[in-house]
Design a protein around this nucleic acid. Structure first.
Lengths: 256, 256
DNA sequence: AATTGAGCAGTTGTCCTACAACCTGACGAC
DNA sequence: GTCGTCAGGTTGTAGGACAACTGCTCAATT
């Protein structure tokens, strides 16, 4: 975004094509700033430009810059100090995102500097089970799409994921398109956009998880059992993801 | 806080006693609003008063109310919808806080409606190990305080916690006061105030964790391995907390 | 020389007012 | 009943002002 955008109303913004709600400016700036930080433009511990500087850089008001700054602060990415400035968090390491943020696993792997990959084991339409009906708010006759994927980092399997999506309004064409690319990308296309997830964590010791010959000996997994919700609060996915213990750095940034 | 506070400068606020930095108004309002929500004044899914209403209730500007609202939103407690209002999140269940928020475990247990308790197993001053020196940024000759606690909910042990605090400036009197009350309360008193924690999660299967006869058969634990930092980024505690699998609802709220 | 304190410039926190963008419900035209 | 229009309320953004805080300089003091 260039300073030329200054004083433009939203009516004249770059991308007016979206039918649903447009992205708020504050969020846009936050994502842009996050990108700059993650890419290393500002060293850990160093000070970012002042709020008024950022206003000029992006051609927005201080209200908007502050909205973005506060968002980054609650993500634990920066520390805002009254009277002295905004500083890039410095945790010694280079952890940039934890599981408290709703990002796809492949995205997280990529930010860690590894090459993510997905191997589909099953894509199948079937009736919903009782538990799935409850969790996804479905009727007895509703169908679901049953996905089983192995998620890899640098070729090594780091997690087995069992995902269930409501398939009531899903065409066979769409179903098959899940085999290609990120699951979230395909979900995006058909209007299933998760913005929140309520997850439960468990330690699991089982030999029944996963498939193939890369299955770990130990059978020890960290289970992320979660339901994804869209903006209106409708559940759009129910996933059980088993992370192979020791192969995935499962980080949480806890803030006050 | 009454509407009478309106237009007062901070110089005249209710509690001017604090020597260090005072709590920002936005945070105060956020905590107050959170309290009202958790206590059930607003039902899940229902709308909160509008921003201008809240301005009048608390006698602050809309900027401040918005700061608070945004904070609650990033905590996943409310959903702010452009043009229609702020709504209490409704996840079907009554989950109010996840581990992405830095709260003491006992506090979390209390918010779940259970009675928390702590049984100390060991309080000991000793030399820091290599790992502890690294994690806590200590010198070779520095001492640490070694705490071992069992955390209970309604009398049942839900976690074993191994905590290590830098003890360089700790008097014997302070050391002994750890046996009483919450660990964080005592830390507060001596100026060790954690505001952030970087945690790693692991699944653990071991018979060497814990003590006493309430130790679980399975030996299956969820390990929260974390370092706490204060406002200035100094590490103030290093904890390994082993949650007995199945006895503690380990929830994460993931947001975008 | 070391310490203290006042002052100053820069930065974030809060306030005020105004308007844009958006959502909901009411109401009438069809 | 369906659709478009409109009005009113709500959140998002703008701009300007001042309060509160931090870090620094530098003179006064010890």
């Amino acid at each position: 975004m260039t300073p030329a955008n200054k004083n433009q109303t939203n009516k004249h913004r770059a991308n007016p094509s979206r039918t649903s709600t447009r992205t708020p400016l504050g969020r846009e700036i936050a994502e842009e700033l996050r990108r700059r930080i993650v890419e290393g433009e500002f060293a850990p511990g160093s000070r970012l430009p002042s709020e008024s500087d950022l206003c000029q850089q992006y051609g927005v008001s201080r209200v908007t810059v502050r909205t973005a700054a506060k968002a980054l602060e609650s993500q634990g990415l920066v520390d805002i100090r009254h009277g002295s400035g905004m500083f890039v968090m410095d945790f010694g390491g280079q952890i940039r995102s934890g599981v408290q943020e709703l990002r796809s696993i492949t995205e997280t792997i990529a930010e860690m500097g590894l090459t993510p990959g997905v191997e589909y084991h099953r894509i199948e339409r079937r009736r919903a089970s009782d538990e799935e009906r409850t969790r996804l708010h479905l009727e007895p006759e509703d169908d679901v799409l049953d996905l089983q994927r192995a998620i890899t980092a640098d070729g090594e399997i780091v997690a087995y994921s069992y995902d269930v999506l409501p398939a009531t309004n899903m065409t066979p064409e769409i179903e098959s398109s899940f085999g290609e690319g990120s699951m979230f990308t395909t979900m995006d296309r058909i209007g299933l956009v998760p913005v929140r997830a309520l997850a439960e964590l468990h330690a699991v010791n089982s030999t029944k998880v996963g498939w193939g010959d890369m299955r770990p000996e130990s059978g020890l997994y960290l289970l992320l059992d979660q339901v994804h919700f869209d903006r209106s609060g409708t559940p759009v996915a129910y996933s059980k993801t088993y992370f192979v213990e020791g192969r995935f750095q499962f980080v949480i940034l806890r803030t006050r």
